[in-house]
Write a protein that binds this DNA or RNA. Structure first.
Length: 931
RNA sequence: GGACGCCUAGCUCAGCUGGUUAGAGCACCUCGUUUACACCGAGGGGGUCACAGGUUCGAAUCCUGUGGCGUCCACCA
């Protein structure tokens, strides 16, 4: 660190160190047999995505974990990558082509479109990877994986083929969630329910057998009534017993449809009569199946009505048709009323339009290893942080439904299934190899076959992430990439919003695919579960919200651009800021001032180190023992002992918090130690002590121990500045990095101090220093009350016990400098008339007799007395309470007793102080009430 | 309809297994260019810990209920 600026300028430091890290290859995660492995797979962002605050949070946490593992000497690997993100990417490419070339994907055809999509991805994709680097992420970039890479694709298709062969994948004509905009089926997880304001239409259908009589029915979707094939009532509904088996007239197209009885109908809802539209409602579909009803699909895939709806509706959009149908009902005199109504409607998560339940032919996965997936979490093989998400996870598995894995898209992994040409799809027999071919390579006579046009759900590729990023299922690749060394991975860091989409499915995939193949009939043993799970810990982050509590989103424009924040506050400042407000699994309201605090902290750190350097050359700094050997034990005073003791406490706190994923705790405790204990106190105290040349080396060595350890503890959080300062102060040898150095443990630190410098920690030092700090604070407060500039030297008097006076007199120089005092004088006699404070050491007086505002002083002291009396009263009551002494732990009782004594003494001193302040002013409190 | 989370200073949040007089940062007020740092230092004001009961010697902390906010799950048309 040659020329240090007064202000930390992150920009060049960040660039320089990042390049240097990359060049040295220190992010490479190689297997090392003699070391413990540590592995994280990144939740792959969409390949075309840009960095959001959510990514900042998520990836800072992962980076902290990996960097700490690296410091601890583990073989650490963080695998980065991107997701092809089927629907999202395809729709963006389609939009782009429409705007720029005026063509649709159908104009181009599959192959040309995919070529365009790849081109587009290569051009616009991967931005986020560069952004992650700016954040400081220490991923092993040489292992960057994309879900459409050849090897990865092969894994996805292998999984499909395997699951097909094992009987978990089947083709079926079922009700699925259909997105009329994306024109594809969706899984249940991709549908979000939203309350919608609409109308509940009450209408009447005429009874065929009783002309002139009607049943009354309610519906929110009159546009599908053309698909009605029955009307249903509850079997036990007395009101309608006589109608069961009769018919009603469907008004248009006019047709007699049966009145059936089905227990799904709620008697209490509306009139208790339900119109049954098997093609357009999942529940109706089930009723239809039970009663063998015809299925009349009146909708086109894009949500317009078709011919079956009648000529006047054909081609009309579903929402326009809703109004038109209502109008027509009204014209026919069949509409009773349309009342305002709010109900939940399923929306396509991506396209944000209501989905249509639609009967279609799709591929489904019946999940394997459900029981083991539950056990993996329930029995603690996988730990969730915070724990409560286990319940959500287990609940989902309890109610798990088969997964619709086919998508009517082109961008993705094309389903490895071929159909024999000439075999009518409706007559397709999946059990007959002459009809259907499922394999990785395809049929040997491709000219006779036609491949399934669909691709797989994106999540049906990313669920293999921990496996396929490390070579699975290719034996050679797995060996090369040391899958077995790094698997199960150590921790997964993600948001709880994808617990079903991704986390649960990865667990299932791991259990099914990792290791030796086991038949479905064989339940995995706990040992096998432990080997096969994809990760041991899952840390769920919160969701970042704005100050109004809204989710951050592009459309709302309420998300700051992390790169702007990095430019303004530095990557370390941003990381610090986000981590200091990131409680475990709680949503986070993003407040920019926390990032500012992060920047300020970095600046403080920078300047403390700068000052340390200015204070004098250090000597050997490259190891703790080297620093300790610079210590002269005889020169240590209570401050040094207290500082080391605090450093040990900090170390333990940070380690415990880190292991428990309590990151804000880490940040907070380092902040408090560094800023309050080290800078505000120890460095200030050092300033006067450094005048003594014989003690200088020792004091600076203590400072070096503190700074060195703080840099190490801080490094996972703020990698750039700590690396810079580490080298600037000579802690690291040339060519080495801080990220390969472990922080001292408190025990190793103490051991080295003793063995190298013969120092044993004085247990009472922290308490002594606390008393001195209290003394200084009170003295400063006294001066401040009298508007004395802090640098103006005043004379202080002290009255107290000999031990206390010893404590003060051995530290006089420091105290005088910290307080701004010319002298501190012991007084045996009373110091009447001077303003004072009762400190933990004794009573302190300000020698300012002439300038004292006695009235104000008496008011201040009497307030203090009042407050203290309340405290004394309550603690006396507590101690008198027989239950307290009997039941409370001994040390608590003892603590309360000691404290009471101290407070009583303090009260006596305060009263003396008060009595010494005499005045004739009647407005002034003349006595002190006794509690 | 079920489940989970949250409500602590003006704002954003700590306070984890109950135990001194409930903390931090920002904001606010006063003072301060002392050989690191104004992205700073010193001092200060500000809280009946959402509300109501209960358990306990003792509750911000545990239990029950109420209210408000939020999230997830759920086929009442």
């Amino acid at each position: 660190m040659s020329e240090i600026s007064k202000v930390y300028e992150p920009k060049q430091v960040e660039r320089r160190w990042y390049d240097s890290w990359i060049q040295s290859g220190c992010f490479n995660g190689e297997a090392q047999a003699e070391r413990e492995s540590y592995c994280i797979v990144i939740p792959p962002p969409n390949v075309t995505g840009v960095l959001t605050m959510g990514h900042v949070l998520n990836n800072t946490i992962q980076d902290m974990l990996v960097r700490r593992a690296r410091q601890q000497g583990k073989a650490a690997r963080w695998i980065p990558g991107t997701d092809h993100a089927g629907i999202a990417t395809q729709s963006r490419v389609e939009k782009f082509l429409k705007q720029n070339e005026g063509v649709s994907r159908h104009d181009l055809g599959r192959e040309k479109f995919l070529a365009k999509a790849v081109e587009w991805r290569d051009k616009h994709g991967g931005i986020i990877i560069e952004q992650l680097k700016r954040l400081g992420c220490s991923c092993d970039w040489e292992r960057n994986v994309h879900t459409l890479d050849n090897g990865y694709s092969r894994a996805v298709l292998t999984a499909f083929v395997e699951l097909y062969q094992r009987g978990y994948i089947y083709r079926g004509k079922r009700m699925v969630n259909w997105c009329p905009v994306s024109l594809t089926a969706l899984s249940d997880e991709e549908v979000v329910m939203k309350p919608q304001k609409g109308k509940l239409y009450k209408m009447r259908y005429e009874i065929v057998e009783y002309p002139g009589q009607f049943v009354q029915i309610s519906t929110t979707r009159p546009e599908t009534l053309m698909g009605d094939t029955a009307v249903a009532v509850h079997p036990e509904d007395e009101r309608y017993q006589h109608l069961i088996g009769k018919h009603v007239w469907r008004p248009f197209p006019r047709e007699a449809i049966p009145i059936i009885a089905d227990s799904h109908v709620e008697k209490e809802f509306g009139t208790g009569v339900l119109k049954v539209t098997p093609a357009h409602d999942p529940a109706d579909f089930e009723i239809g199946k039970r009663h063998n009803l015809p299925v009349i699909d009146v909708l086109n895939p894009d949500g317009t009505l078709n011919k079956l709806a009648g000529d006047e509706f054909a081609g009309m959009d579903r929402f326009a048709a809703r109004k038109a149908a209502a109008k027509k009902l009204e014209a026919l005199g069949l509409l009773i009323e349309a009342e305002d109504y709010e109900n939940n409607v399923g929306f396509s998560e991506r396209a944000d339009v209501p989905i249509e339940p639609r009967l279609s032919e799709q591929w489904f996965l019946k999940y394997p290893r459900i029981a083991e997936a539950k056990a993996a979490v329930r029995d603690g093989h996988i730990k969730f942080y915070p724990e409560r998400w286990e319940k959500t996870y287990l609940h989902w598995l309890e109610n798990i439904q088969d997964w619709c894995i086919s998508r009517q898209l082109w961008w993705g992994h094309r389903i490895p299934v071929w159909y024999r040409k000439g075999v009518n799809r409706t007559e397709l027999d999946c059990a007959n190899p002459a009809h259907i071919h499922v394999s990785l390579e395809g049929p040997s006579d491709p000219e006779n076959w036609e491949q399934d046009a669909d691709v797989l759900d994106t999540w049906a590729s990313s669920w293999l992430w921990p496996l396929a990023t490390m070579g699975w299922p290719d034996e050679t690749a797995m060996k090369q990439q040391a899958l077995h060394y790094f698997y199960p991975t150590s921790a997964l860091v993600t948001g709880p919003d994808i617990i079903f989409f991704w986390v649960a499915r990865m667990i299932i995939a791991g259990l099914e695919f990792y290791g030796e193949r086991k038949p479905a009939s064989v339940t995995l043993t706990p040992e096998e579960i432990a080997q096969r799970i994809p990760f041991k810990d899952v840390f769920f982050t919160g969701i970042i919200r704005d100050l109004q509590g809204r989710k951050m989103s592009k459309s709302l424009g309420n998300s700051p651009d992390p790169l702007d924040l990095i430019a303004e506050y530095g990557a370390d400042g941003l990381r610090y800021g986000i981590m200091s407000i990131a409680p475990q699994g709680q949503d986070i309201r993003f407040a920019e001032d926390r990032v500012e605090q992060g920047r300020n902290f970095c600046n403080k750190l920078w300047n403390a180190c700068r000052f340390r350097q200015i204070s004098g050359i250090q000597g050997e700094n490259t190891s703790v023992s080297a620093i300790c050997s610079r210590l002269n034990a005889s020169k240590l005073d209570a401050d040094d002992h207290a500082m080391i003791a605090r450093l040990c406490t900090l170390t333990d706190t940070v380690n415990t918090a880190f292991d428990a994923y309590e990151f804000s705790q880490c940040v907070q405790s380092i902040y408090a130690f560094f800023w309050n204990d080290f800078c505000d106190w120890y460095v200030e105290v050092s300033k006067s002590r450094l005048q003594d040349e014989s003690a200088k080396g020792t004091i600076l060595a203590i400072q070096d121990l503190c700074i060195r350890q703080v840099l190490l503890l801080l490094h996972p959080l703020t990698p750039f500045i700590t690396e810079e300062l580490w080298h600037g102060l000579g802690f690291g040898e040339a060519g080495s990095f801080i990220q390969n150095k472990a922080p001292e443990t408190s025990t190793s630190l103490l051991a080295t101090l003793e063995s190298t410098a013969g120092v044993r920690l004085d247990a009472g030092a922290v308490a002594d220093i606390d008393r001195l700090r209290d003394f200084v604070t009170q003295a400063r407060a006294l001066k401040s009350q009298y508007n004395l500039a802090s640098r103006r030297d005043v004379q202080l008097f002290f009255k107290g016990e000999t031990t206390a006076w010893n404590c003060i007199s051995t530290n006089t120089d420091k105290l005088k400098k910290l307080i701004g005092a010319s002298a501190i004088v012991l007084r045996e006699d009373a110091v009447d008339g001077a303003p004072g404070s009762v400190t933990q050491l004794g009573t302190l007086y300000l020698d300012l007799a002439s300038a004292v505002d006695v009235v104000a002083e008496r008011i201040r002291i009497s307030k203090e007395i009042e407050k203290l009396e309340k405290v004394i009263t309550s603690s006396e009551a507590r101690l008198k309470n027989p239950g307290f002494a009997d039941k409370a732990p001994a040390e608590v009782v003892e603590g309360a007793r000691v404290q009471l004594e101290e407070n009583k003494n303090k009260l006596i001193e305060l009263k003396k102080l008060f009595a010494g302040l005499t005045t004739n002013d009647p407005s002034c409190p003349s006595s002190v009430r006794h509690g």
